[in-house]
Amino acid sequence: MQQTIIDIRNVERVYEMGAELVYALRDVSLTIKQNEYVAIMGPSGSGKSTLMNILGCLDTPTGGEYLFNDSKVRELNDNELAEIRNREIGFVFQTFNLLPRYSALKNVELPLIYAGLANAERRRKAVEALTKVGLDDRMEHKPNELSGGQRQRVAIARALVTQPSIILADEPTGNLDTKTGIEIMKLFEELWQAGNTIILVTHENEIAEHARRIIRLRDGLVESDGPRQAATV
């Protein structure tokens, strides 16, 4: 039995828009265990981005309970949330979100700086992560000197470098051409094979099909949750 990393129960997220209450998430419950490969799907407005922000501890639910590695996220303060994001979660964004002035290596080192690691240790780990994503020959390049696929690889290396409990990828291929997208998905597959837990947020079926489990959201509720159809494998 794999250890449960994420356990959310009846989570609700409400935004106040003036006098109106907007329910981004109404009542979502799910658990994600170690070394799962999950895709969260849904049309825009379904609440998948909100769910991702909550899972990533960037946002906190307005109702329900979120247990991350058995600790109650709602009771954590800002600093503790930052620490969880730093140590336990690796983000991969659609727009890469690298810091433009920093080299690839420096971008990957950044989470380790926040974790308070010493210089040599930082460098060693960052080089290791970049090697893992196949960019050991591009380490000193700045983001604008890299292709889209390479940038996303740097972002993945940055997500990996702290050896987080989960990797949260939000439309990771959304800004890439099909061929590069396939390469990136291959990389995720490898990472999963190597034991990482991956949560993929996407609206594209082909991308979601890479995952082993698909959760569909609609109007802030879980529409379906189960293993991907054997037929599409």
Partner: peptide
């Protein structure tokens, strides 16, 4: 602003 968001997402604390 975006840079601050990125930094926070990868673990920068308020004081950082």
């Amino acid at each position: 602003t975006r840079e601050i968001g990125i930094r926070k997402a990868i673990g920068a604390k308020r004081r950082t």
